[in-house]
Nucleic acid binder design. Structure first.
Lengths: 345, 345
DNA sequence: ACAGGTGGTGAATCGCACA
DNA sequence: GTGTGCGATTCACCACCTG
């Protein structure tokens, strides 16, 4: 970075080491071993060392940015708070924090925390005075004519897009999906502008920049990574008319778990539910499970599980099985779900 | 906070001032004025002042927490990075960052950024050694039997839940939705535990804690807010039926050694057990150990040890690994354990 | 050619009670 | 403190194989 001139870059996209601090080995319930990030480039002695590293590259990045330039950084809870605080300390002006919601994150195998299903991006201008680029209309068009929100639902990089060697091993442990960079660059750069990625890795930034007709610089100190990236980008065909090809965002199915009805107050814990013909009865608990008394003791579980158990059936659709008593009439609980779905739109 | 004793609180939920640094007035496209947060409690002279404030209350919070206690903080990009970094500096151990995705955020009226459609919560243990509470089963139940993810989709507080005075003005500018606190407290506290909210405001934490059978302390320096919160919480009806709020984790079920099945006659010595897909086979001995023949000689030991040895795995849950042959069908030995547990009650 | 089943895998800070 | 052993725990997607 030190060899590049002042105020020469329009946008910087940075995917620095996250400093994950992983402990021992982790296994899936089927005893297979999780292939975690154990690369030497992700190891720092302590938080102070990581902070010094962060402040150093953020300072250079600010020097390289044009006055109206912006910076993107991606990270997880391990590092993003330190990066964000350092940004603000240096006078960068945060424009948004953006959540990359993963459609297919790795589960939490031990059941000890919430599934870590997202990463965080910070989008910041070089200073509070920067007159930055934001392609509002492109983003709105990409989102079915609704303003693009700060939470993005995008799959992780896998399948054919994931770079692998002849033995099928992934060539970079943290390759980012092109869909993510597509949205970043489409939102914050104009065709022909210069994008710098100081942690180039497998070269996703360069590949997408080339395709979208942006110029790019990638910095990578590992020679293998640099070679992989060069070969990858050489295979990319630039779009001659980018307006013709848009990556449509992934739509999420509007699933409504039964527990949400309790959480949102549409259903009080303790409410009684009835099966068809009032032959069965169960009580709603505060976590959205049911409790019912059967001939062989209590049944607890989801609306589907308890419905199945009471009928002695292998499966049951709880949404149509269970009913509320509304002034003597039996009303299927599915009407509450429809109500909530309507509120969600 | 200074008046409370050391290590007296199980969970802290903190909704500190966000230090929003709003500039002039903001108007909607129809020229109506946006009623933003202009309260004096949200104004700080500079980042250093805000940091000092943050570090002070985080230090007190850590003193008040029991060794296995956890802390929740909610914030936006204006303050959450500073809070997160300060947390880590103090030795708190981050467990998750959780994204509250708003179903109905305020749009970005100027079209200059992404719609700011989320807030960030940090969930952290008092230290890396804390053996914190996480009600995995409840969270899974609340999400239709899938692991709860780190992104939560919840509406903002509005409608009947929003506290308003006689003139219809909102009584607190940043009242949080009860659904958010419902999920927070259901995930990380047990009935009867003590929850502290050092920025009590309109008292959402107290209202939900009372309803869910948790004890609570709210600290609020504004007398009007304190009065509003007191009146609000007085109107809340707690759930009295313990079966609605007490969720017994599987991990706390009474331990049943495998040998008891043999001892009680549920399993004959000499019975053959099979691994998944009948790829492995072992014989039950009279002391509850197994004996199996592998490629490298006999394996003897507990159901777990033999299962692990045959798979070449570091560990194995024998209860789910081994199956009985019941008329040609494979039945996990765990059903025998459940039978014995039921007899023991 | 197509449907359905099987197996692999992803930026992961992933126990706890005993002796 | 340290060591040992029980036993709890996974979702979405894709490649590949089989019928």
């Amino acid at each position: 970075m030190r060899s590049l001139p002042d105020a020469s870059v329009d946008v910087i996209f940075a995917d620095p080491p996250y400093n994950l601090q992983l402990g021992g080995e982790l296994h899936r319930p089927n005893n297979s071993r999780v292939d975690g990030v154990e690369d030497s480039w992700d190891r720092f002695d302590d938080l102070a060392t990581y902070d010094a590293f962060t402040r150093a590259w953020l300072a250079e990045a600010q020097r390289l940015l044009k006055p109206d330039g912006t910076l993107w950084v991606i990270g997880s809870y391990h590092n993003i708070f330190r990066v964000g605080a350092a940004l603000q300390d240096r006078g960068y002006w945060i424009l948004n924090d953006v959540i990359w919601r993963k459609s297919n994150p790795m589960p939490n195998f031990r059941g000890r925390r919430f599934t870590n299903a997202h990463e965080t991006l910070i989008w910041a201008a070089r200073s509070q005075e920067s007159r930055y680029t934001f392609n509002y209309e492109s983003m709105k068009a990409l989102n079915d004519d609704l303003q693009m929100r700060s939470d993005w639902y995008i799959p992780i990089c896998s399948g054919g897009e994931r770079l692998r060697d002849a033995e099928g091993r992934k060539q970079h442990s943290t390759q980012k999906p092109e869909a993510l960079l597509h949205r970043v660059l489409l939102a914050s750069t104009r065709p022909g502008q210069l994008v710098l990625d100081p942690f180039f890795g497998s070269g996703t930034t360069g590949a997408v920049a080339k395709r979208l007709g942006r110029r790019w610089i990638g910095l990578e100190r590992d020679n293998d990574y640099a070679r992989i990236a060069r070969e990858r980008i050489a295979r990319v065909e630039p779009l001659t008319d980018p307006s013709l090809i848009e990556i449509k965002p992934k739509r999420e199915a509007p699933r409504v778990p039964f527990g949400w009805l309790v959480e949102r107050g549409l259903l009080e814990p303790g409410t009684l539910l009835y099966g068809p013909g009032r032959r069965h009865c169960a009580k709603v608990r505060s976590d959205g499970t049911l409790i019912a008394s059967g001939p062989e003791g209590d049944h607890r579980g989801s609306i589907h599980q308890v419905g199945a158990a009471l009928q002695g059936a292998p499966a049951c659709n709880g949404w149509s099985f269970w009913h509320l008593d509304v002034e003597g009439r039996a009303v299927p609980i599915d009407v509450l779900r429809q109500k909530l779905r309507a509120e969600m739109e």
